[in-house]
Design a protein around this nucleic acid. Structure first.
Lengths: 256, 256
DNA sequence: AATTGTCGGCTTGTCGGACAATTCTGGACA
DNA sequence: TGTCCAGAATTGTCCGACAAGCCGACAATT
């Protein structure tokens, strides 16, 4: 034992240093959201490293959500969509084991509460967005019933959007963050339930009632209808015959 | 309005495909947690792309937390700690704008609910962990009062840990995910309030009561005490004289 | 005038090869 | 059996190169 352990000095690889340097510039405000990243050759020159190294650093930024790439354009600085990219990976892993019961329990606690808060704070603009969402869902159902196009993802996406708008209407970004995992997990669950039962119109009706209570600025009413909506959610799942404690993706696979 | 919008076709770059392919193998279980990633040259050969391309894909995996690198060793497959992950980026940005009011509103909705669920499901092991946490906090306060060591981060960390254990005690991973942003944001808030007021013992007492109600499996009692605890949280902040609608980091800077 | 086609410069995506530094591995040796 | 070391394997970094894609400008067409 040496009298004094040196804290094992860690030489971060150059690509990590590139990442750190650019991240720092973003946080400091030197690089603003929407700005394009400087060209790779330029960065390589400035940092004094090879372009390949710069590119590896940029990949880190990309996955962290700090820059967004669209085609082969210059990547642009972006605000990471909260937890979106961050744990897209972890969420997928979690998905493998989370059960419908967990999702439903969480939903039936959080969603009604969210509806209540939203009813207090919702803006006219958000009410309009909800109305538009409902109209779109109406159209989607019309198409489904006419057996024209049938894209379940469209419908589930609309459903998810409805609940997301509601969260945003709460005007509380911490709540929005808390709410995010639920909407994310809801998608696979919706894909299981809806096509098997075809209860599209029932979902739409619930959304209509909720919207109507929100427009009336009626917190209790909004909460009540949301609770019913969540109970329907569970009943729907039970009717599929799957075990409540089955992991979501097992159920999904069982369906496919 | 076109009759039918084409879904803009996207050709992902090769490094992204590499990422997707490896990710898929991880999720499918072909690559297990702890396994080392195959060598870059081997991967390049198998995928039929250049090693540089493979490396860029690996950087994406790295930042997503799916692989961990230690020195220049072979990266190993890992389960992303959804707590620590890329939120370092998002957290810093979010922190810049979220206000204490938002945090408190969210906390006083979510935490009592969490306490209630936890009281129903908590295991003896988690009760012990809470007891240990309380003991540690007791010791920390003793040190503070004796003016020996004074590390506010220690105390805030213990406080956060208490609430995290509570979330885990709920046994619902969706709720744990929902709860995560709150505990995260709580740290800077706690750093503002506690040193200015020195209400350490009041926090400890609240935790004691909550623990006692949890041990008694009393959901109502646990919820009630948690609500009081949250009210204290707000009162504490108000006593600092900062505006409730001030962004947390502005308040933090105002203190420093 | 507005739209479409073409051109050239710039940047990204990908490739091949190369080498030093570090890590791993198997066998020699105590 | 346990330790040590040389060589193999692997990562980190560099260099140079080229096709493909994006962008603005300008010419051609309707």
């Amino acid at each position: 034992m040496q009298p004094r352990e040196f804290p094992r000095l860690e030489r971060a690889p150059a690509y990590k240093l590139v990442y750190d340097a650019i991240e720092k510039q973003i946080f400091s405000g030197a690089l603003k959201v929407g700005d394009p990243l400087p060209a790779e050759t330029l960065l390589a020159e400035q940092f004094g490293v090879n372009r390949s190294t710069v590119r590896e650093g940029i990949r880190l930024l990309e996955q962290s959500g700090l820059v967004e790439r669209e085609g082969a354009k210059r990547p642009r600085i972006a605000i990471p969509h909260y937890l979106e990219l961050a744990s897209s990976a972890s969420r997928a892993l979690i998905l493998a084991t989370i059960t419908f019961r967990e999702l439903w329990e969480a939903s039936s606690l959080v969603e009604p509460m969210m509806a209540e808060i939203a009813a207090r704070n919702i803006s006219d603009a958000d009410l309009k967005r909800l109305a538009a969402n409902i109209a779109e869902m109406e159209e989607a159902i019309r198409l489904i019933e006419a057996r024209e196009i049938f894209d379940i993802d469209d419908f589930v996406g609309l459903d998810r959007e409805f609940h997301e708008i509601l969260a945003q209407a709460s005007g509380n970004r911490v709540l929005i963050l808390s709410h995010e995992p639920i909407t994310k997990l809801f998608i696979p669950a919706g894909r299981i339930i809806l096509p098997r039962l075809g209860t599209y119109r029932r979902v739409l009706d619930a959304h209509r009632f909720i919207h109507e209570r929100l427009a009336a600025r009626d917190p209790d009413g909004a909460r009540t209808w949301m609770r019913r909506h969540m109970n329907d959610f569970r009943k729907g799942y039970e009717l599929t015959g799957f075990d409540l404690d089955l992991p979501l993706d097992a159920a999904r696979l069982g369906l496919a």
